[in-house]
Amino acid sequence: MLAKRIIPCLDVKDGQTVKGTNFVDLRQAGDPVELGKAYSNMGADELVYLDITASHEGRKTFTELVGRVAANINIPFTVGGGINELEDVDRMLSAGADKVSINSAALRRPEFVDEIAFRFGSQVCVVAIDAKFTDGTWKCYVNGGRIETDRNLFDWAKEVNERGAGEILFTSMNHDGVKTGYANEALAELSDLLSIPVIASGGAGKKEHFRDAFTLGKADAALAASVFHFGVIQIPELKLYLKNEGINIRI
């Protein structure tokens, strides 16, 4: 049976791993390759590396990092951040990434999803959606959660599904960094609506939250950062717990 996936996310700035709380207040948490290798050895099913560097030089550093990750790590990994053109996708895949995650670029130009799917295949195209629940609706945000758009989460997710996205990485901005659990209701609605896997992101604080994302939220994978980076949750222990809870997990 296909296993539910546990995915540590590593935010990278100038070659170093960082993680913010509610997208601000960054803290240092280790060397990206070493950290990724450690997670892989602990049983992480995939890794996500997000480049949060804005500068051109930072981009170059990140591409080199992707190459080092590919050489050293034997599980699949996704890269995201600053991917705006097909050339960026090509560069990341050529450096050894298995998938790319796109966010703002897709909202600005939705055809970008079709183009990636056509040229490289749907399986490499992860569409990340940052959304916030306000006044009874889920609105999508761009630029790392700084700018609100008029797009509704569910309409947008359905659209990118149809355009050829391979997976949706949904981050609830209401839940991110708060550690009170994932946005399970919205996740379940996405899972029922879409024909592609949904990755839950934002809100993990304890083991039960992962279980709930898989059961209540019907998510195919759950992503987290700080609980792993700071050792609040150990991946081997988490996976044993989930297995005992009856969830199909790779041990």
Partner: peptide
């Protein structure tokens, strides 16, 4: 509905 294609991920 839960059988999504491509089959992607870890299987035994």
């Amino acid at each position: 509905h839960t059988d999504k294609v491509p089959h992607m991920g870890w299987n035994s």
